[in-house]
Each structure stands twice: as structure tokens, then as C-alpha cells.
Design a protein around this nucleic acid. Structure first.
Lengths: 207, 207
DNA sequence: CGGATTCTTGATCGTGTTCAAAGCAGGTGG
DNA sequence: CCACCTGCTTTGAACACGATCAAGAATCCG
């Protein structure tokens, strides 16, 4: 079964900043992230961008049934993804209950993540949103080389974080600076942070 | 098959303001709204509420696979819902591809709605959020008695709308008043509005 | 009809956006 | 190898929007 899954998928390698899907174009593939981080985003008519999520290894994206999947997807780091044709994946799902189980669970996890995103955006203060973002990303992404458990890598731009959280780039920058000053986090380099005081961060995140 | 679906479900009638699920308690049921409008909400540790969505007839809620469904669900209007035990629904899904198809499509629709919610919350101005909310609800809910196509019923409280959109009750009220003054909408009664100028509303919503 | 609840409206204040400019990389070519 | 250029990030100052506090109007319920 796992072998059969491999036969229907096609692997794609992406360099940083390389778009995989252009916004507005539908796709009949379902993708799975093997390696790297990608950004899934939507554009409003007047050109503003909403980053929907950051995709990490293991994440699924695309739609199995419901036609339109019009998000733009772009690699942030070097990345590798697998593409499954929707119809073939559907067929496999019918034949193997286990595949079905995994996929339904994945979609529901995606839904739960979207709901958490909503809850984060509903939080009144920008500080709460950024604190929560740092904590969430810390849980999802393992730390890069040279870092321990309590390290967070944020490979995306400040502007990406801003468009994800619905605040401005400047505010993101200011808050990260504030967290550094308050010794909640310490910068290893521009992208990597050590979470020094997770408790304080959690308190700032309001939960 | 449809008959068999009926045998595994239990119907529940709810009066307005009646909670169906208390926040924080997990449930092993999947529900489907038959009639009425319900509110699904989540609470942060410090007591603030985030309304996740308003459930309309045909909507599914609950989780099929992933354990925790901890949202609170409360009836806004008189409502009727069907409860399906998760395991029995899973079993049926395996046996009938059609059921599986419908359910996966429903979850994906739910996901798409959550993503739209995220996009709405990312919109900078409160006016945009409220305009979009009015338009969206207009599409979902048919109008009550005495109204035509272009009528929107908003049976929920202002506070519910506020907690859904991540703004304050007062702002919701002010903006609805503004839209009335600008003749975008006209109040039939406290809950029902006639969309007079959908174009202007859409422009305000930023798309 | 009275009491409670929700909705509206007003005034003030704080937070985050916006506009603007300077500081920092990373990459390219001389 | 360094100077330059470009794009990103940081920091600053002013302003605007929406939150909050507070009071009054409307509606619902017994």
C-alpha cells in the first residue's frame, strides 16, 4: 500500500522563494510537505495578502473533493513536496481504510489549526499574537543545527509573519525587539531565537 | 443507506440560548444542523470568547477522527440537530463511498469557511469585517418570512458578532448604524436587514 | 407595567498603522 | 577584496482607528 502510494506521487524540489502554485489557479493535486517550510497565502481584490499558514514537513495541502484550491504556495526555504493526483488519491482512499483514516485525520488537524489561527487573530493585542506565534512555531519546527530544544527558527520574512497575524511589519519587528529586551527570547541570528522565558511568553500570549 | 443513517442518529431539539455542548468537554458525536442557527465558540484562559462560526442548516460540527472537539455550542434560535456517534459514522463511511465523499466534502467546506474567517479577521478595518459578515450571512441564511432575496437575518447578538469578528460590541453597533445611514442596508426589525446597496457593501468589504 | 437585558450613542484614551528614514545584510561586478 | 546596490529590518514620530468607560434608549420578559 505504501509502495502503491509512492507510485502515484511525483516529487518536486523547490528553491527558496520559488512559487509552487500561483494564487488564483486551481489545482487537482494534493500535496504533502517532505522537507522545508512553505507559505500558503490568499490575496484580496485590492491586493492585500493574507498568509493562511506556514507549511511544515508532514503537512498536507490542496483539496481532495471541494474544487477550488486557489491559494498561492511558495517555498520559503529549500523544500521538497510530493504531489498526488486528486482522483488517484481518492481511489486509494476508497480501497484502503487506513489511507482514508490518515487523510481525514489530516484534514481535521488542518481545520483545528485554522481554528487556532482564528483564535489568535481574535486576540486583541498584537503582543499576544506575536507571542503565540513564536510559541506555536516553536512547537512545530525542530531547531536548526547548533540549537537545543528551546530554539525556534522563523525562516519567513517579518512581512510574512505580519500578513499571517494581520498586523503590520513594523509592529512585528517592534514586538520581537521588545521580547528580546525583556529577555523572553534571545536572538541567535536573524532567524533563530532561543526561548529564554517560555512562561513569560505564554503569559503574554494570554493563555 | 439513507435509512441506515437514520437509524444511527439521534435528533435533539433546542430552545434559544440552550447550550448543546459545554466548552471544554469533549464529545464523541458528530452533529448535523437540521434547523435553526447555533453558535460555536471557544474560550481563552483569561475568559475571553472567540466565536468560531455560526452553524446553519446542513452544517456539520464535531470531529470524526481527531479526538478533541472542545468548542461550546449553543442554540441562538430554536434549533434541531442530529447526533451521529463517531464510531458508527466512521463504519458507515467505510462501507459507503458516497457517505465518505459527502463527509470529506463537508469537512473541506468547513475548512474553507475557517480560512475565509481568517481572511476576514486579517482585514484591517472593522468596517470591512462587518460588511463582509453581513454579505456572508446573507448568502448562507435564507430570509425569514416577509422578506425577499436581498434580506439578511442576523439572529445572533451584537456581542456574538463582535466576538466572531474580533472587535467590540460597540463598534459592531456603530458600523451597522453607519451602514444604515449610508443606505447600504435598511432595518426591517432589530434582526432583519434589507441589503439595499450590495455593491457598496462589497466595496466596503474590500473585494 | 416594571425589571432586566441588549443595543445605541458619546467622550476619552491607548494601541497600532502609516509615513519616513536609517541600519544591516547578502550578492554582484568592478 | 572591497564598493556598491538592493531588499529587508529596525527605529522614530504623528495620526487615526477602535477599545474602553459610561450613560441613555429600546426591547423583551414575566
Amino acid at each position: 500500500m505504501r509502495a502503491e502510494l509512492n507510485t502515484i506521487c511525483r516529487c518536486i524540489s523547490l528553491t527558496p522563494r520559488k512559487p509552487l502554485l500561483e494564487p488564483g489557479n486551481d489545482t487537482d493535486q494534493v500535496y504533502r510537505v517532505i522537507q522545508g517550510v512553505l507559505r500558503e497565502s490568499e490575496y484580496s481584490a485590492d491586493g492585500r495578502r493574507q498568509v493562511m499558514r506556514f507549511l511544515h514537513p508532514g503537512d498536507l495541502f490542496g483539496r481532495l473533493q471541494l474544487p477550488p484550491y486557489t491559494h498561492g504556495v511558495t517555498a520559503i526555504t529549500a523544500a521538497e513536496v510530493c504531489a498526488f493526483p486528486r482522483d488517484k488519491l481518492n481511489a486509494m482512499m476508497h480501497r484502503f481504510p487506513e489511507v482514508e483514516h490518515v487523510i481525514v485525520a489530516a484534514i481535521e488537524a488542518e481545520l483545528a489549526a485554522a481554528e487556532r489561527h482564528v483564535a489568535t487573530m481574535g486576540l486583541v493585542s498584537a503582543a499576544e499574537r506575536v507571542a503565540r506565534f513564536v510559541l506555536d512555531e516553536g512547537e512545530r519546527a525542530a531547531c536548526g543545527p547548533g540549537g537545543g530544544r528551546d530554539c525556534v527558527t522563523l525562516p519567513m520574512r517579518r512581512a510574512d509573519i505580519a500578513d499571517y497575524l494581520g498586523i503590520s511589519t513594523e509592529t512585528v519587528s517592534r514586538l520581537i525587539t521588545r521580547f528580546k529586551r525583556k529577555k523572553y527570547i534571545a536572538a541567535m541570528d536573524r532567524q533563530t531565537f532561543r526561548v529564554v522565558d517560555a512562561e513569560a511568553l505564554r503569559k503574554t500570549a494570554g493563555e
